[in-house]
Computed example of a mutant assay.
Amino acid sequence: MSDAPIATLAVIGLGMATKPHLEALEELRGKVNVSGVFNRTRAKAEAVRDTFGFPVFDSLQAIADDPATDGVIIATPPNQRARIVAVMAAAGKHILMEKPIERTLVAAGDLVKECADRQVTLGIVFQHRMRQGARRLRQLVDGGQLGELALIRAEIPWWRDQAYYDVPGRGSYDRDGGGVLISQAIHVLDLMLSLTGPARSVQALAATTRMHRLEAEDFATAGVTFDNGAVGSIVATTATFPGEQERLVIDGTFGTAVLTGGRLDVHWRDGRSETVGDVSGTGGGSDPMAFPCDWHRDLIHDFAQSIRDRRPPCITGHEGLRVHRLIDAMTRSAATGCIVNVEETP
């Protein structure tokens, strides 16, 4: 078997969210090549070059024109995505993009369609799916070992201090598309839906607490019905000091699975129990990047293999739209005070 790298990727955007990507690419050196990095502020790109040795691109077009670059990792704020995707997709570059896909459901659908029309691979960074406990939970759900799913509870009691929201545009609709739902809770909600299947309807409440000053919400809660007949609840906030591990609880007719951070505890009704993984940091406290790069490493490696093998990545753009539909429905429900159906389009 050849020892040649699987694929060559460039990194676009070098803000806070890029740290685990860069560390993961360092661990993947030799398996995944990095053709270079690009940031609107060149000083950041040069700092990454000095730390990791990755070359610096002078422009987006230089990446698009580089024949050695197979794909790109886009880690910019959501309001910068449309132009970048247009340039890269037109050049045939495959795209692995940080969540959210875009600020609104319609805009997210447009980007997914553009990549499909250009026949470029689009993967979305939902790294919580790559944790050991989450993978084992998927095996149990897919194998029917929990029985029929009955009750789902997603709890995201995270913390961000005001300095986090003092960064220009953070927590705004224009730059981020919203607050805790689309910027933080989206990870757990995506994981939830990957296990339960689509949500059917929601009744939600959203608010900005006295803990923060920001345009969008730092608290949201909802009751949910799912297509599979299960019901559930969601509570998400960044106003719980000092921040706790998120929990996803799935009650089935044969047993209950509790995913706390990265640790899975399963209790079957026949008395058996199982524990997989550990309660590792997931960025729920004051440092949003306080978690290992392992999950990003595995996701990037899968994306590189998907390019080589000409297959879909483990989390596609179309699949990533599912959580956008849920967040859109929660936002509309909170605004109207009514039960809202989760739209199936775009």
Results as ranks from 00 to 15, higher is better:
168 P>Y: 04
167 V>W: 08
153 R>W: 13
146 L>C: 06
143 G>P: 00
151 L>V: 13
172 S>G: 07
184 Q>F: 14
162 Q>V: 05
173 Y>A: 15
167 V>R: 12
152 I>H: 10
167 V>Y: 10
174 D>C: 01
146 L>I: 11
141 V>P: 07
165 Y>I: 02
162 Q>G: 05
171 G>W: 07
163 A>F: 04
158 W>L: 05
182 I>L: 14
179 G>A: 08
155 E>Q: 12
148 E>T: 11
154 A>G: 14
181 L>M: 13
180 V>C: 12
172 S>H: 11
157 P>Q: 05
151 L>M: 12
161 D>E: 07
143 G>D: 13
186 I>H: 13
174 D>A: 15
177 G>L: 03
144 G>Q: 08
175 R>W: 07
162 Q>M: 09
140 L>A: 02
153 R>K: 09
141 V>N: 00
157 P>R: 11
177 G>E: 05
149 L>V: 09
177 G>R: 11
142 D>M: 05
176 D>P: 00
152 I>M: 15
154 A>K: 02
174 D>F: 10
149 L>F: 03
166 D>T: 04
162 Q>K: 10
163 A>P: 00
157 P>Y: 10
179 G>L: 06
167 V>G: 02
168 P>F: 01
157 P>N: 10
146 L>K: 14
143 G>A: 15
149 L>R: 12
174 D>R: 15
145 Q>A: 12
146 L>D: 14
180 V>E: 13
175 R>T: 13
146 L>W: 14
157 P>G: 00
175 R>C: 08
140 L>D: 10
180 V>Y: 13
179 G>K: 02
167 V>K: 03
167 V>N: 01
172 S>E: 09
182 I>K: 03
160 R>F: 03
176 D>W: 10
149 L>Q: 09
185 A>D: 06
